[in-house]
Design a protein around this nucleic acid. Structure first.
Lengths: 343, 343
DNA sequence: GACGTTTGCTAAATCCTTTTAGCTTGTGCT
DNA sequence: AGCACAAGCTAAAAGGATTTAGCAAACGTC
């Protein structure tokens, strides 16, 4: 009579369900999680329980379930930022894949702050997420170890680490291709802009960049590498200094979409003084693609990057380590043949 | 000796901690959550427990805690997308504020799908999040009710609902201002592009748009309203049709950054045929701001939008409903005086 | 009708914490 | 010695589920 809620104030529990259905708590539980046939509960009884559940609007308490079963039904992902197409794309792919597995996706950003990174990781581990994806994490190794100690399946994306399976874009070949295209479209100095010294993705791309320069026989003097970090402001400053130091280079390889933002605002302010350099960017953004600039943009394959993680998870790959390369694709190729098209 | 982990295989529990510290489980618990002084535990004992905790690396099981205390320490937010500066900005503000309150932020996107929206909401409610922010939710009311029934504090952002406190940008005045600026910079037809018919934000902006048109004495025949939805592709198609139907209008108010993306790609393809229309956009994106177009962009105040939610939460405002308007700011104003500057 | 089997279900332990009532011991006072 | 009281801690009951061992009744067999 009256409210269908439990007498003791709180939400309806399995005890209320059992009472309503006229069975024991165990029977109710067995029915609710579908194992009733194995325990010889009759269909009649099972139906009674299910009807009762519908009537009183019973939903199991996930925390109690998780406490008992050690299955949280949570999937965690750590990203540096949301305000960035690449990581936002990874996040959305992650959510879709997690939902396919009936896991609740949890995406948390860390603002590239090491302490936050650690704290967030600890929290997610404490929540016993069933899979943890570390995307663009500064120091994945510490977290990889923490996960292994807690029995949590963990994978690195974008920035790899030796202690866990890692999936990254093929940075070296990608950068090599971009650079080759740049160099095929003009002579003169060429600049690499963005990223961090010593960081895997940056150094791989620098390696690809230098290899392409070598292959094209460019002189060392014509090559500048400005690892100015990931912030747009810093890229902008680096470019100002470059401009102050002499004639603006006719070709730039830009390491990330954030550095590209820096370039865009610099170009907007100083457009008249920098001419029309050919650009290559190791990332893609639909609005960036609309800027009237000669540019080639690579798009990292976020679906494949995340897909590889989940495939490995599904395959229950336990072997530590391993690196998987996902080739990026050319999203846009619109370079100017200002100088010698084929040197 | 040997491993500091529990004998029974799993993670270290408070029982292990108590054993190690030579106290009872209760004492360990009291010490760990800081209430020990009220229960006359000596500092010596407390220190012993804390040392032991550090030694065996004890971390409480948040699920067991939540089960007991009914405090989940989780904060939930639902957004339509991550790949969008506005919602990404809301998400990052949300994370920062949640962390200030020692809550773990959980942001989930729904791809503007009603079924996903409901499912995600149910999950978050089942997780007993302590605050749930619904940003840009199609049908907040159903979720608002669900939350009230479960005793979860809930608030709507961007799209309001009658059943919960709602915080939105001042759409009407914002659109009014944008439109007034557009109209002050030229004669001729003016178009409103984007949004959904019947949706609160869209209709408010349309109202502001029309009011400004009236105030400027524009003829009804010179006003077009194209509520083509939020997808970039659809905006692009709507613009193509507009172009096919006659001369391209010299002024457009674009309702969202996604619709602006549609405009940008349209402009890139058809730039020569559409001239140099003055644009206004009810959203901001750093790359959009770099396009060489005469444009005024409004930036919604994501910090204030989220801040208002948390302030109300902290004030424990229990009254249902209420609408709070947050004025957006002009992020960029760069319109052309092609025609009559001051009509 | 005694005994073994099957059927249909349930009691109880368990997961890990929190929290309150109350148990020892020691001290001070008469 | 006896009593009151404080100090310092702990036992035990939640909290809401899952899961296994096993009970009671019905049935079949000789």
């Amino acid at each position: 009579m009256g409210k269908p809620r439990a007498s003791r104030g709180g939400r309806t529990t399995i005890r209320d369900l059992a009472a309503r259905a006229g069975t024991s708590v165990s029977t109710a539980s067995l029915v609710m999680n579908g194992t009733w046939e194995r325990y010889r509960i009759t269909r009649t009884t099972a139906d009674r329980v299910r009807t009762a559940a519908a009537e009183i609007g019973y939903a199991p308490n996930p925390r109690a379930q998780a406490l008992r079963t050690r299955r949280s039904a949570l999937a965690g992902m750590i990203v540096p930022h949301h305000r960035n197409r690449f990581f936002a794309g990874l996040a959305e792919s992650f959510e879709a894949r997690a939902r396919d597995l009936d896991l609740v996706p949890i995406v948390v950003s860390t603002q590239r702050d090491l302490a936050t990174e650690q704290a967030v990781a600890r929290t997610l581990v404490a929540q016993e997420v069933e899979i943890l994806i570390l995307a663009g994490t500064e120091d994945p190794t510490a977290i990889n170890r923490l996960c292994r100690a807690s029995g949590i399946w963990c994978v690195n994306v974008d920035l790899p680490g030796p202690e866990a399976f890692s999936v990254v874009s093929d940075n070296r070949n990608g950068a090599n291709h971009l650079t080759a295209r740049l160099l095929a479209h003009g002579e003169g100095p060429v600049v690499f802009l963005g990223g961090r010294e010593g960081e895997y993705a940056t150094e791989e791309r620098v390696a690809g960049f230098l290899a392409a320069c070598d292959a094209a026989g460019r002189a060392r003097a014509d090559i500048r590498i400005l690892r100015c970090g990931y912030r747009a402001d810093d890229a902008c400053i680096a470019l100002s200094e470059l401009l102050d130091a002499g004639p603006f280079p006719p070709a730039l390889l830009i390491n990330s979409i954030t550095a590209f933002e820096g370039f865009a605002s610099f170009w907007q302010a100083e457009g008249s003084r920098i001419g029309r350099p050919n650009l290559a960017c190791f990332d893609w953004d639909p609005l960036a693609a609309c800027l009237p600039l000669p540019i080639i943009m690579l798009r990292q394959n976020v679906e494949a990057l995340i897909g590889a993680c989940f495939d490995r998870f599904a395959a229950d790959g336990d072997e530590t380590g391993g690196l998987m390369l996902i080739p990026p694709s050319v999203a846009l190729d619109r370079l100017d043949d200002t100088q010698s098209p084929h040197p």
